[in-house]
Computed example of a mutant assay.
Amino acid sequence: MARRGGEGGDGRTGGGRADRRVGGVIGYEDVKGAAGRVAGRVRTVAVAPARPGVWFALEFLQHTGTFKARGALNFTAAQLEAGEMPAAGVAIASGGNAGLACAWAARAAGVPATVFVPETAPPVKVRKLRGFQADVRLVGQEYAQAADEARRWSARSGALLSHAYAHPLIAAGAGTLMEEIHAALPQVDTVVVAVGGGGLFAGVAASAAEHGVRVVAVEPEGCRALNAAVRAGEVVDVPVASVAADSLGARRVSEDALGWALRGDVRPVLVSDEEIVAARRRLWAEHRIAVEHGAAAASAAIDAGVYVPAEGETVCVVLCGANTDPSDLTG
């Protein structure tokens, strides 16, 4: 039997959602404000049919290769507008993609960027970071260690500390993607997104709620920060171990992400590493799309039957990043 997202039985889904509401989450007005800042400066997402009832949002075609460019641009533009950008520029910790976006947006604005990444970050991402003229610091084995060093550096240097996901300007910028999906595909009922720290999810959920669209929030079994937070009713730390950990390996989700998981039309689901790898290979074999494992997680939810669309439902799967080495893809 297909495993439907949100149903109990196999321990892989979010289970019963708490009734309490988390205050302070970003709202639709934040996303609309971000849309004004990034208009004409990001690539409008293209949508393409994958099979009957299922579409792909090709966000991996975005500047820097991921959706992260949206949040980084919104963050930088808002700080410059407010006159709050220091001479030391910006600092950020990242598994790679958020750092790339931060460095790209900073270079466009003419400000310095210092990016802290784990020593385990994919070499392809480190090379791209240096190509954006960022000062790259390799620290520790996990994102949390890089984040600690970024905070210390910001305090010492005066650099403005950005965040890979847990900042309202970052999340709101990411939510502009949903605005574009809805404009291109107004009949969409459900959008499927991969979740790491929850910046993309929170922004998308804030926009989706305005348009009456359900969000399926997909995590690897070994990186289940949102799933665990929903079960606990509060943000909690989780272990990280997944083939997609370089982009989805946050130890905890943002409060914005948990807030929208508890208040929106959201269905949290989990996929296995095997399902992610299979989905990534299928995207290449059938569509000649090469994405990173984190992006393939969203597609895995549909491919593996973790979320089964209803009859007549229109689903859009966000393929959110392509900063990967495609040498392991064959066929």
Rank of each mutant, 00 (worst) to 15 (best):
T66A: 15
K68W: 08
K68C: 07
A69Q: 11
G71T: 01
G71H: 01
A72I: 07
L73Q: 06
N74A: 00
F75T: 00
F75C: 01
A77Y: 13
Q79T: 11
E81D: 14
G83A: 10
E84P: 01
P86Y: 02
A88E: 11
G89R: 02
G89Y: 03
V90K: 03
A91K: 11
A91F: 05
I92N: 09
A93F: 13
A93N: 12
G95A: 15
G96C: 07
A98P: 10
A101D: 15
W104R: 13
W104D: 05
W104F: 15
W104P: 09
W104S: 11
A105L: 02
A105Y: 09
A105Q: 12
A106S: 15
A108G: 12
A108Y: 05
A108K: 14
P112F: 00
P112Q: 00
A113I: 14
T114G: 02
T114D: 02
V115Q: 08
V115W: 07
F116H: 04
V117Q: 10
E119N: 07
T120G: 03
P122R: 09
V126P: 05
R127G: 13
R130M: 08
G131A: 14
F132Y: 15
Q133Y: 14
V136D: 04
G140K: 05
Q141L: 10
Y143G: 06
Q145K: 10
A146C: 12
A147S: 13
A150K: 04
R151Q: 10
